[in-house]
């Protein structure tokens, strides 16, 4: 059985660590060998953050290299564009249309690329763009962007919805469970 590779990319502070934790536990419960590689420390401070989730019969390397990602879940447009080379042939790209300016753009040293989502959709065949921030707000918190995106990812995976819901319940504090499930459900639609 081939290993399935999921990359989660975004901006430090967007909640990608929680998403990867949720995925890891969900996949382990499905009986797979799983590896999840995270980034801590300096790069978390608003920097470009990458998390790798890999599952299969036996997973060796914890990282996902060029042309290896079966799924890329991008929490932000510019970060999506940055990791295009990692997408495998026929891989699925899920992109949050949210734009977060990096410091070089804020200071005027660089410009945020125009029409970045449109261009992704033009150049790749399997791009699913979603306004996860709007759906997260609808669910009750801008912080639930991660659950909206997990909801969208779940559409493309064969794991039953109730297993995802169970995993969410195990990964978030009880008082936020309903809000996170709502965000997940909105993303899955």
């Amino acid at each position: 059985m081939k290993t399935t590779n999921i990359m989660i990319v975004g901006v430090g502070g967007q909640g990608s660590l929680l998403a990867s934790k949720l995925l890891g536990n969900l996949l382990l419960d499905q009986g797979y060998d799983v590896k999840v590689s995270e980034v801590h420390g300096m790069s978390q401070r608003g920097g470009s953050v990458v998390t790798y989730v890999k599952f299969g019969e036996r997973v060796y390397s914890p990282i996902i290299d060029r042309c290896e990602a079966d799924f890329i879940v991008a929490f932000e447009g510019l970060e999506a564009a940055r990791y295009v080379p990692n997408l495998a042939q026929g891989g699925r790209f899920i992109v949050n249309t949210q734009q977060i300016d990096p410091m070089p753009v804020i200071t005027g040293a660089a410009e945020y690329p125009v029409d970045i989502i449109d261009r992704l959709q033009d150049s790749l065949s399997n791009v699913d763009a979603i306004d996860a921030l709007a759906l997260a707000k609808e669910a009750g918190s801008v912080k639930a962007v991660n659950m909206v995106l997990m909801g969208r990812l779940s559409k493309y995976m064969s794991i039953p919805e109730e297993k995802w819901i169970d995993a969410i319940k195990k990964s978030v504090a009880p008082k936020f469970t309903q809000m996170n499930i709502k965000a997940f459900t909105l993303g899955r639609k």
């Binding site: 978390q44 920097g47 060029r66 940055r82 080379p85 660089a110």
Partner: peptide
């Protein structure tokens, strides 16, 4: 990374196109 080792060992690796030149996102 696995690809780096594959290349060093002279194995075939899939081709890819480098990402366009994008603004970096350093930690802040």
């Amino acid at each position: 990374s696995q690809r780096m080792i594959a290349e060093a060992m002279g194995l075939d690796v899939s081709n890819y196109t480098e990402a366009e030149k994008l603004p970096v996102r350093p930690p802040v």
